[in-house]
Simulated scan of single mutants.
Amino acid sequence: MNLTRRAVLGACLTLPFARAAKAAFPDRSIRMLVGFPAGTAPDLVARLLADALKDAWPAGVVVENRPGAAGHIAAAEASRAAADGYNLLFSEIGQIAMAPSTFARLTYDPKDLAPIARVVTSDFALVVPASLPVADLDGFVAWARQRPTTFFGTFGPGTLGHFGAVMLAAQSGFSQESVHFRATGEGMTALLNGDVQGLFGSVALVAPHVRAGRLKALAVTGPQRSALLPDVATMAQLGRPGLEFEAWFGVTAPVAVPAATQVELEGPILRALANPAVRSRLQEAGFTPAPQNREAFAATIRADTARWAQVVRETGFRALE
């Protein structure tokens, strides 16, 4: 056999192995950055998702917390990471769709993060202390109109809960002042003590206090009633459709990740979210499974970016430095 025939035969023998190696993605663990501390909603959902992906990705998903700056530290790191499919960001609405309008300067461009798949949504509930002498949303509005100022707790300026309070007050004709807390525990303590009179909190956060009788839930902000608070009407049902909003969490990757690799990432995530056991675990944790593929997730991001830019303009919110 001459050298030419040997070379051809060698190429034919190695080609299947090369194809097999190429098809082995991922062949090592995938890093998923979370921009918030352990125990927060994004962290909890990211870890539930990572566990659900064990069968599809035996090498595992390593969840790494990079808290700080409203999630911007993690977003900046992810946007500049190697575009090889092994570096992901577990994103939330604030980092991707709201930050361009709520911050004057960003250390990253959300457009440098490609949507891979939306995972869940999280509704909010307007809650007040159980001691407040109101029975429903109309009663709360009437009560607030009689006061010089009603204080609302929030978990930071420019967050969903902050805008919820501002929009409710503007729509209902009462004066409100937002009190921003660094930690959810501090905000909830202030509300339970009556130091603030209202708060838009995630349903997962406030539902235990409502069921225990420590708080009253006056409305939820999602498109339909929450399974955790089934007796509480939506804002739309109460005649306030402009106050519908929800948070979402999803997976993004550096935009330069090849399209084929993005597809390889998208598929297992969507299949995991179709698993009834996974959906049940997410629901028990207080989240609504809301999977979207890359195209649908991109459309959601575009729509929410436009919506919150309009809210910022209409409320006169001054972008944060």
Rank of each mutant, 00 (worst) to 15 (best):
146 Q>G: 13
131 S>V: 11
158 G>K: 01
129 P>I: 01
124 F>C: 06
152 F>V: 02
144 A>P: 12
127 V>S: 01
156 G>C: 05
140 F>V: 00
144 A>L: 02
124 F>T: 01
162 H>G: 03
155 F>S: 07
160 L>M: 14
146 Q>K: 15
142 A>C: 10
151 F>M: 13
155 F>R: 09
124 F>S: 02
159 T>N: 13
140 F>Q: 00
161 G>E: 08
130 A>S: 15
143 W>Y: 15
149 T>S: 13
143 W>A: 07
120 V>F: 02
161 G>Y: 02
138 D>Q: 14
156 G>A: 04
123 D>R: 05
134 V>G: 12
160 L>C: 07
120 V>D: 11
123 D>K: 07
157 P>R: 07
126 L>K: 11
161 G>M: 05
140 F>E: 05
130 A>T: 03
133 P>I: 06
142 A>G: 05
136 D>G: 01
123 D>I: 05
147 R>D: 01
145 R>S: 09
127 V>Q: 00
132 L>N: 14
138 D>T: 14
134 V>E: 09
157 P>D: 14
162 H>A: 15
158 G>M: 10
145 R>W: 04
130 A>G: 11
132 L>I: 10
147 R>L: 12
147 R>N: 04
119 V>S: 03
135 A>D: 13
126 L>I: 03
125 A>E: 05
133 P>Q: 09
149 T>W: 08
146 Q>R: 15
146 Q>F: 06
123 D>C: 06
154 T>W: 00
159 T>S: 11
153 G>R: 06
140 F>L: 07
123 D>H: 07
121 T>D: 14
142 A>W: 09
151 F>S: 07
123 D>L: 07
135 A>P: 10
129 P>T: 11
133 P>T: 10
132 L>K: 13
125 A>C: 01
128 V>F: 02
119 V>C: 12
133 P>Y: 04
119 V>W: 12
153 G>F: 04
145 R>H: 10
121 T>K: 13
120 V>M: 11
124 F>M: 06
134 V>I: 09
144 A>F: 03
144 A>H: 09
124 F>N: 04
159 T>D: 08
123 D>W: 11
134 V>T: 10
161 G>D: 04
130 A>C: 13
161 G>L: 03
120 V>K: 07
157 P>L: 10
133 P>L: 14
149 T>G: 09
160 L>S: 12
145 R>N: 01
127 V>K: 00
148 P>C: 12
132 L>F: 02
140 F>I: 05
137 L>Q: 05
135 A>G: 14
119 V>L: 13
133 P>G: 12
158 G>N: 12
130 A>M: 01
135 A>L: 13
157 P>H: 12
144 A>G: 06
150 T>L: 14
121 T>L: 11
152 F>C: 08
144 A>N: 03
147 R>F: 04
125 A>R: 01
130 A>F: 00
151 F>R: 15
147 R>H: 13
132 L>T: 07
150 T>V: 15
139 G>E: 05
129 P>E: 02
127 V>C: 04
